[in-house]
Nucleic acid binder design. Structure first.
Lengths: 215, 215
DNA sequence: AAATGTGAAGTTGTTCACAGCT
DNA sequence: AGCTGTGAACAACTTCACATTT
C-alpha cells in the first residue's frame, strides 16, 4: 500500500514485503507454540501463512540460516529471532495524535499492546472534549507533544488527524524526533527520506475490493 | 499487504497496485476540483500523488486514453472515470461483522460514507451489550446475517471478529454471497478464489515501521 | 512548445529445481 | 529420506526515452 522507502536503511536489500511476511510468520509460529509444536517445516508453515515454501525460505535467508536440513525450523527459536529482527523484543513506546472517532477506537484497541507496542501518550487540539470517555492514557493538548516526545524519546507515532492538518502535524513530529509514522489521514505525506510512513487508508481498501468484485 | 488475487477478474491484466494508486489519484483530483482547477498534467498530479509521471500515465493507459497531448487531463472527467472503474459511482452497501472495540469505531467512522460506501448492517454474537452506545445501524445477532445479506444483496463485508472466529465467520459470509472481505482479524483467511480478501492488520503495520526505524 | 501514450530497457520480487546437509 | 539453502529462470512492475498529437 505504501511507497517502498528502502534507501538509507542499514539493510537496504530486504524488501518491505518480506518484512510484512515476517510478521505473518511470527503469528503462525506463536500459534504453533501455543499448540505445543516445537518444530515446523517451511512447507507446513508456508501453507499456514498463505505463501509458497521457497518464498518463506528466501525471506528467512535474508537474515541467515536458521533451519536444520531434513528437520525444519525450531518454533521458539525462530519466533524470537523474528521478534528481534522486527525490533519488538522490548516494549516500544508510541504516541497517538488526533483523538477523533478512529483515534479513540485505537486508544482502546488491545491489539498493539499484545504485539509489543504501548501507546504512552495521546494528543488532540481539543483534548477536554475527548477526555470524557475514560480513556487511558489521558489526552494532552497539541502543545505538549514536543516536550513529551523529547523527554520520553518516542520514535513512533500514529496519526489520526483530519487530512488538512496531517502534513503540518507530521512536520512537527519529524522535527522533534519521530521517525516512523502510521498515517490514517487520507493524504500523501511528504517527509524526509530517513522517516518511514505507512499509510493505512480504510476507504481505499474498500475501493480496492469494490474494483475486484465488480460484475 | 495482501496476496494478489488477480486470476478470474474480468480484467486480469491490471495490477492490484495500479488499483490502489487509482484511489490515490482520485483523492488528488477531488482536491484539485475543490480548488477550482480543471486541467492537470501527469507531472503535476504524479507529484501530488507521490509517484513518477510515467507511472501515472501507464496506470491510466490500462483503461484507455484520457488525456490531451500538450494539455493534460480534464480533472472532472478523469475523476468520474476513475470512480466508474472502481465501481463506486453508486452507493455500495457493506456489512460489518464483530462490533468490539474496532468494530464500534468503524461504525462511527465517517470516512466510508464519504467515498461511496454505506454500512447498512452490523452483527455481533452479543449485540445487546453493544447497542447501548447509540449506534447506527442497529447491531443484529449473528443468526440474522444470512437473511439480511441475501435480502439486500450485499457483496462486501468488514470483518472485525476475534481471530479464532474469523475463518468460520468468513465461511458463512462467503456461503451467503459475500465476495469481498476487508479482514481486520490477525489471521490468514482461506477463501474460494473468486472471493477477494484485503487484510488490514494494525499491529503488523507498526511492526513494519519498527523494523525500518531500527538503530 | 508542451504533454500524452507506449515500446523497450531496467529493476525488483517470485518460483523453480536441485545440490548439500542432517 | 527429508528438508533446507540458493543460483538460475521467470514473472511482474517501474522507469526511461521518444515518437506522436494538439
Amino acid at each position: 500500500m505504501n511507497p517502498p522507502k528502502n534507501h538509507r536503511t542499514q539493510r537496504p536489500e530486504i524488501p518491505r514485503k518480506t518484512i510484512y511476511r515476517l510478521s505473518i510468520y511470527l503469528r503462525c509460529l506463536q500459534r504453533l507454540a501455543a499448540n505445543g509444536i516445537h518444530t515446523v517445516s517451511s512447507e507446513a508453515m508456508a501453507l499456514a501463512a498463505g505463501v509458497k515454501s521457497p518464498q518463506l525460505r528466501k525471506d528467512l535467508a535474508y537474515f541467515g540460516q536458521f533451519g536444520t536440513r531434513g528437520l525444519g525450523y525450531d518454533v521458539d527459536q525462530l519466533s524470537s529471532m523474528i521478534t528481534q529482527w522486527l525490533g519488538t523484543s522490548s516494549l516500544q513506546p508510541v504516541i497517538l495524535v488526533g483523538v477523533g472517532n478512529l483515534g479513540t477506537a485505537l486508544l482502546s484497541y488491545r491489539g498493539f499492546q499484545k504485539e509489543g507496542f504501548s501507546v504512552v501518550g495521546a494528543f488532540d487540539i481539543r483534548p477536554v472534549s475527548r477526555q470524557a470517555r475514560q480513556s487511558e492514557p489521558v489526552v494532552m493538548t497539541m502543545g505538549q507533544i514536543e516536550g513529551f516526545v523529547r523527554e520520553r524519546g518516542v520514535r513512533l507515532a500514529i496519526l489520526c488527524v483530519p487530512p488538512e492538518a496531517a502534513q503540518e502535524v507530521a512536520n512537527r513530529l519529524v522535527a522533534v524526533g519521530i521517525v516512523g509514522i502510521m498515517n490514517f489521514a487520507p493524504t500523501v505525506l511528504h517527509v524526509p527520506e530517513e522517516v518511514v510512513v505507512n499509510n493505512v487508508n480504510l476507504a481505499i481498501e474498500l475501493e480496492n475490493l469494490s474494483f475486484f468484485i465488480q460484475q
